[in-house]
């Protein structure tokens, strides 16, 4: 019973935080400095490690698929397979997990400590709305940054696949063949598909992490608990929504 209650409470809380944050997006142009700050933080935290993850993910896709395709003599399709998997599925999910783990956790920790140490209270007494001042810039920055991060990781992942396809003796595919096949199969709609997913994941991560952070009460121990809770909830919701967004995109034929 308690679980059911808290499920509805959290769902309601997330939806209403999302609505209020969307309302505060009206003052987005007056807060460009804060949004830029957040974008820089996100870029700084994710670009180096994102490149590493993408390189190896692309590589492992080629490693797994290459020899099998080669058995059937269709190894030139490695390019398209790696390209499409990254663009439509693996890129957005991987970027989301990276952002939830690095950026979302930091957001949850920062807002949780601000709640615990009465900084949020102080903001309120100064008539500064915490949703406008803290949540909205993080929301906008995450929703903008995630699709960009996905493109960045896609490109690096393709390259990782290309290297493995070239050096693996079972496959031995030249860069030219790999990229020609990739560009034939990865079309604009596939790209848009991935970017829509990324934006949805950005909404989920920023709202979940800000919500959990702002709801934190107690002391330093609770800050740690909140960070874990925020990251786990983000992961779960990202994967659940991945399925439904895919269903919707298939239905709408953006696929």
């Amino acid at each position: 019973m308690n679980g059911v209650m808290s499920f509805f409470r959290v769902t309601g809380g997330l939806v209403s935080l999302l609505m209020e944050t969307l309302y505060w997006c009206k003052s987005v142009f007056k807060n460009t400095d804060k949004i830029t700050d957040q974008l820089l933080v996100i870029g700084y935290q994710t670009l180096p490690v994102g490149a590493l993850i993408a390189l190896f993910s692309g590589g492992v896709l080629a490693l797994q698929a290459g020899p099998t395709l080669a058995q059937f003599g269709i190894e030139e399709n490695v390019g398209g397979l790696v390209g499409l998997s990254l663009v439509k599925e693996i890129g957005p999910v991987m970027a989301a997990i990276l952002v939830a783990g690095r950026v979302g956790s930091a957001m949850a920790a920062e807002l949780a400590s601000m709640s615990v140490y009465e900084e949020i209270d102080a903001l309120k007494t100064m008539d500064i709305n915490p949703l406008r001042y803290l949540v909205m810039p993080r929301f906008i920055a995450t929703v903008l940054a995630l699709p960009v991060l996905v493109i960045y990781m896609d490109v690096i992942g393709w390259f990782g696949g290309a290297i493995v396809a070239a050096v693996n003796p079972d496959v031995h595919l030249s860069f030219t063949v790999y990229y020609r096949n990739l560009s034939e199969l990865v079309d604009f709609t596939a790209f848009v598909n991935g970017l829509i997913k990324a934006a949805v994941f950005g909404v989920i991560i920023s709202i979940v992490c800000c919500y959990v952070g702002l709801k934190t009460k107690g002391g330093p121990r609770e800050i740690g608990t909140s960070v874990t809770k925020a990251v786990v909830l983000s992961f779960v919701l990202v994967l659940v929504f991945d399925y439904y967004v895919t269903r919707i995109l298939l239905f709408l034929n953006i696929d």
């Binding site: 140490y117 009465e118 209270d121 102080a122 903001l123 008539d127």
Partner: peptide, 18 residues
């Protein structure tokens, strides 16, 4: 808080600096 007719400010016991 902070929306009232009169401006009320508080020095928090914890200071509550940003």
């Amino acid at each position: 808080p902070g929306k009232g007719e009169h401006v009320v400010a508080m020095v928090f016991q914890s200071s509550a600096l940003f």
